[in-house]
């Protein structure tokens, strides 16, 4: 019996598992940012960007909004963009 190659293993992983692993990695990066004591506008905005990407992945792949047509497709995206923009503006204002 032949052992599965890396490519075979890669293609046997479910898309939702890829999304899960991506969420874990992005959360790890966020946590490490805090552990390393990194701060400032650029770092904050990168961390916020990672959070918005994670939210988008949850909305698209877990909540099943990907592939929808009409206004519901944009529900989570709009929710992420509006507070995201306000938070960005507030952090820029501090500088």
């Amino acid at each position: 019996m032949r052992a599965a190659t890396g490519t075979q293993i890669f293609y046997s992983i479910r898309p939702c598992t890829f999304v899960y692993l991506t969420l874990v990695v992005l959360s790890l990066v966020t946590w490490l940012t805090g552990q390393l004591g990194l701060s400032g506008l650029s770092i904050s905005l990168i961390v916020l960007g990672l959070a918005l990407i994670k939210g988008l992945l949850i909305g698209d792949y877990y909540m099943g909004l990907r592939g929808l047509t009409g206004v519901w497709r944009w529900a989570i995206i709009v929710w992420l963009v509006i507070p995201g923009a306000l938070i960005t503006w507030a952090f820029i204002k501090v500088q």
Binding site: V47, L48, G55, I87, F91
Partner: peptide, 17 residues
């Protein structure tokens, strides 16, 4: 999933940024 997505914004906003 909504509960999860809210925490994903709350965590960096309150604890990290």
């Amino acid at each position: 999933h909504m509960v999860d997505i809210i925490w994903l914004i709350l965590f960096p906003l309150v604890y990290i940024m």
